[in-house]
């Protein structure tokens, strides 16, 4: 690179682009980011080989094709620090629903010419393929956590990204618990913080966009959801969204789907 600024690359795998758009959504900080780093964007997956080397790679998306499985190895080799951004890159994303099913069936139903579609049977997180230095959760990621991560990277400090639950953020924000005071089903007790308890602040239960917290007890929450009147089919659905294949959510939904632990 012709500049002294650290080079930052943004890579896209199987994803909706929402997380990298978060970078563009940093209206107030975008010029500062652009002033401090040399930004290289690789928006499309068509690039066949990785050129150059990068101080920081932000990786969006999951691995769903053999090409991508190879390309992520090249990205890792070209990157000093690799940070995954969002639920797809961190847990396989909504497209990991295929992991619970037969992908050939989907392919034949959805596409007029399924023979042209080459895809793996699973959608897997980046960490299933290469070493990851930091994972930013969320669908999409939080703007504040992204800026915090880039700031921390620039100044050689540890980013302040806590793995506590959404309940912590509700209590910090002063939200009244929607489950305790309203009987609303909520994944907050098992979900990773980072959204600043956005949904409960608007009287909705947490949808688990940030995936499992550091320490969870999903089987106990399942008991609680059942006590609140939620049917098992619905419990499986609520656990199988953007982070369906994250370990704790997957194990819990599979146990419920298999009829385990029901009264």
């Amino acid at each position: 690179m012709s500049t002294d600024k650290p080079s930052v690359a943004v890579w896209k795998f199987a994803s909706c682009d929402g997380c990298q758009l978060t970078l563009l959504d940093c209206e107030d900080e975008l010029l500062e980011v652009a002033g401090e780093v040399a930004l290289a964007y690789f928006l499309e997956a068509g690039l066949t080989s990785v050129r150059g080397s990068y101080a920081l790679s932000l990786v969006e998306g999951s691995i769903t094709t053999a090409d991508d499985a190879r390309r992520i190895q090249e990205v890792r080799q070209a990157s000093r620090t690799l940070v995954t951004i969002g639920a797809c890159a961190t847990a396989g994303g909504i497209q990991a629903l295929r992991n619970f099913s037969e992908v050939d069936e989907f392919r034949s139903i959805v596409y007029a010419h399924p023979e042209f579609v080459e895809t793996l049977g699973t959608s897997t997180p980046i960490s299933a393929h290469v070493r990851v230095d930091l994972e930013l959760r969320g669908c999409p990621i939080s703007k504040a956590q992204l800026v915090e991560t880039i700031s921390a990277f620039l100044h050689g400090r540890r980013p302040n990204i806590s793995g506590r639950s959404v309940c912590s953020e509700c209590k910090e924000r002063g939200n009244v618990c929607v489950t305790v005071a309203g009987g609303t089903p909520c994944l907050g007790p098992i979900t990773h913080a980072g959204c600043e308890a956005l949904c409960p602040a608007y009287h909705r239960g947490c949808y688990g966009c940030y995936g499992p917290a550091d320490t969870t007890n999903a089987p106990s929450l399942v008991v609680r959801l059942r006590e609140g009147g939620m049917a098992d089919d619905d419990i499986v659905r609520v656990l199988r969204t953007f982070n369906a294949y994250a370990d704790d959510f997957r194990d819990a939904s599979e146990a419920v789907a298999a009829g385990k632990g029901a009264e």
Binding site: S165, C167, S168, K171, P189, T215, T216, N217, S220
Partner: peptide
């Protein structure tokens, strides 16, 4: 109690 506790932090924060 560990089977029931969600480790959600609510008790300590309230």
């Amino acid at each position: 109690v560990a089977e029931r506790c969600l480790a959600c932090t609510s008790c300590t924060l309230v």
